[in-house]
Write a protein that binds this DNA or RNA. Sequence first.
DNA 1: ATGGTTGCTTCGCAA
Length: 275
Amino acid sequence: MSSESDSTTTNKKASFKVATWNVNSMRVREEQVIAWLNEHQPDALCLQEIKMVEADFPFEAIKATGYSSIALGQKTYNGVAILSKREAQNVSTALDDFEDEQRRYIAADIAGANGELVRVVNVYVPNGQALDSDKFVYKQAWFKALRKTMRRTLSEHPLTVLLGDFNITPSDLDCHDPVAWRGKIHCSDTERLMLHTLLSEGLYDTYRHFNPQGEHYSWWDYRGAGYRANAGLRIDLVLSSGELLKRSTASSIDEVPRKHERPSDHTPVVAEYSI
DNA sequence: ATGGTTGCTTCGCAA
């Protein structure tokens, strides 16, 4: 007796799962990343702060668990990678019209189980340090270039997901102590305006779409009470295009890796789509 | 109270 659930059935929609994780050193977190891939089987996992050059990236170890990788790295700082079940196509490693010595952007088309392509854009937005610092001037310039790049990307790819470490809380709901953080880096009105201007290009905060309540974060400082006191920020975001949001089915924060021995200070944020 | 912790082929800096 034939089954309608046969995996070869054409036009059948499967789940397309993406995730973002600032690993704060791929050297230290390699085993945790591979274990996470094996357990969760995402179609694409975007990493930030790999903190190594491509020559040192563990392409082979990741391949052994069934994943293909693309990476843009540098020594000591920054660095991004996309790990995917199906090989990345049309890889881009630079924002439009923006010279950047820091490795913070990588994008590619990733196919779902039915062959449909999703444009996956992985970013590590500059931290900015403090609003009166030179690093904040760089953060603003970088973010403006991202907005311009995303305007073009969205016009070319209706199914686009922009995800990564944005180093910006969208609102006070994403901050454990809005009074203490008021006006500070990650929580300032200036940065939130930058983010909402980017969203106005046609991107939607997918975690918040499925989780209207607060008190859930993606980063907790290593210092002090940190994770134990849930003193966190939600700065790791999955932003879906309108067409992709229509096909989204779930989004969640996986706090399990933050509880591990020697954790990253960030934990993975996941979204799923019917693709 | 400008503290505290982690990672870097470290010895101060970025987060």
